[in-house]
């Protein structure tokens, strides 16, 4: 099975949720909910898309760990190992 690039997937899915934002310019340590104006439905869609594409199931209790771009990428890399 191919090994999709986690960072690319995360950025692409965030881009789908916030199409008007330039994900490349988002501060990697900023709260994504503030930086991209993401609500709980958006976040659920993001988590759903990540699960679908990377096969990584993110339990609700881990949501706070994915609140920044850096945090999300780090969390997913650890989970995939």
């Amino acid at each position: 099975m191919s090994n999709p690039d986690i960072e690319a997937v995360v950025k692409e899915e965030l881009g789908n949720i916030a199409p008007e934002a330039d994900i490349g310019t988002v501060d990697p340590s900023a709260d994504l909910r503030e930086a991209l104006d993401i609500d709980s439905m958006d976040f659920l869609n993001f988590v759903t898309a990540v699960h679908l594409r990377l096969g990584i199931n993110i339990p609700e209790k881990d949501y706070p760990k994915l609140i920044t771009l850096d945090g999300a990428i780090k969390y997913l890399k650890v989970k995939r190992r």
Binding site: S40, M41, L44, V47, T48, V50, H51, L52, N57, I58, P59, E60, K61
Partner: peptide, 12 residues
């Protein structure tokens, strides 16, 4: 907790 993200509910 028992569900994959696509089946989860929101409080709304």
């Amino acid at each position: 907790a028992k569900r994959t993200p696509d089946k989860r509910l929101l409080m709304s």
